[in-house]
């Protein structure tokens, strides 16, 4: 290990782009130019049709090897990445490394070096530590791209992009939209990435709705309006994004009970009346029915939750093909 590894590097947002502005890694949405987010969505649009075909494959990434490097359990995200890679004809290697919070960096770096030695082209990384994807991106060989599939409470950029894509397909222009994000923003990497993306896309208003215990300090500095009251926060919004509430937080020092949480912040059809008539309901999944969202809302006509899942494949195909330079 040489000394340069210890020196401060460029900001996470800066090291994501090649000199010519093309995407090299996707670590965080923060700092990316608007045109790039639009390009990701436009590219994803072209892949939506692929999914509808009988033969759901294009040869864009033939010969490339993509590694799903998951230090945290995940089913949905890993599966959609895997499907996306396979539909682009890439070879996929899944590596699940159950880790504890005390896992030391040397093992992470060693893991990385070992896998890199197998001549891989892309790492899809999920890790419990904020900054893990950034750390890995700093240490990979120059030809390897890193896609962040969730690091701690920091970022989950592909989830945010599939959400933006879903919103765009339903609502078109972001500049006239009011979007409310409801729930555990404090622990949510999804919420942070969504907030950055919505602001970069010039969304008219981004709101967060939660009790103070579930909001991080100075959250308004991310560019959101804060509401502690659900009915006020939902008033007149075009998009409602519900966040998952982890089980261990339902009855803790942060919240008294799942019951009281649902009473105050659970999304029901009654509550949804405060939003615009054509408002859509989103959830990154998996939803806790009866805790943050009522079943009849999750399965109702305004829910786009399942669409988010299928859009997730198109978005990930788009991003993978962009970082490898295959998308033209």
């Amino acid at each position: 290990m040489t000394e340069q590894h210890l020196q401060a590097g460029p900001l996470p947002s800066g090291m994501q782009l090649h000199d010519d502005g093309r995407l090299r890694h996707l670590l965080t949405i923060e700092g990316l130019p608007r045109e790039l987010l639009v390009e990701i969505m436009d590219t994803a649009e072209s892949f939506v049709s692929v999914q509808a075909k009988t033969v759901k494959k294009v040869p864009l990434l033939r010969g490339k090897t993509i590694v799903n490097l998951f230090f945290e359990p995940s089913t949905r995200t890993r599966t959609t990445f895997e499907l996306a890679a396979k539909r682009l004809s890439a070879d996929v290697l899944n590596i699940n490394i159950a880790t504890s919070a005390t896992t030391k960096g040397e093992s992470l770096l060693d893991t990385l070096r070992n896998i890199e030695a197998m001549f891989c082209d892309m790492f899809i990384v999920r890790h419990a530590d904020s900054g893990a994807a950034h750390f890995i991106a700093r240490h990979v060989a120059p030809h390897v791209s890193v896609l962040n599939a969730g690091d701690g409470s920091h970022a989950h950029p592909t989830q945010a992009m599939l959400d933006m894509f879903t919103i765009r397909r339903h609502k078109g222009d972001f500049t006239r939209l009011k979007v409310a994000i409801v729930g555990d923003v404090l622990h949510s990497r999804v919420a942070r990435s969504q907030i950055h993306a919505l602001n970069i896309l010039n969304t008219a208003e981004v709101r967060v709705i939660a009790p103070r215990t579930l909001l991080p300090a100075d959250v308004e500095k991310l560019g959101v309006h804060v509401f502690n009251d659900m009915d006020e926060g939902l008033h007149d919004v075009d998009v409602v994004i519900m966040l998952r509430l982890q089980k261990e937080r339902m009855q803790s020092a942060l919240l008294p009970s799942a019951h009281e949480y649902f009473q105050l912040y659970g999304l029901t059809n009654e509550r949804l009346k405060a939003a615009r008539e054509d408002a859509i309901v989103m959830h990154p999944g998996p939803a806790n029915r009866g805790v943050e969202i009522a079943s009849d809302v999750a399965d109702g006509s305004r829910s786009v939750i399942l669409e988010q899942v299928s859009n997730g494949i198109a978005i990930r195909m788009a991003i993978m093909s962009m970082v490898t330079g295959a998308a033209q």
């Binding site: 290990m1 590894h5 210890l6 919070a101 005390t102 896992t103 030391k104 960096g105 040397e106 992470l108 770096l109 890790h127 530590d129 904020s130 900054g131 893990a132 950034h134 750390f135 690091d151 701690g152």
Partner: peptide, 12 residues
């Protein structure tokens, strides 16, 4: 030692 700082921030 070098390794103590070679990890994602919270694990250093």
């Amino acid at each position: 030692e070098l390794d103590a700082k070679l990890a994602p921030f919270p694990s250093t």
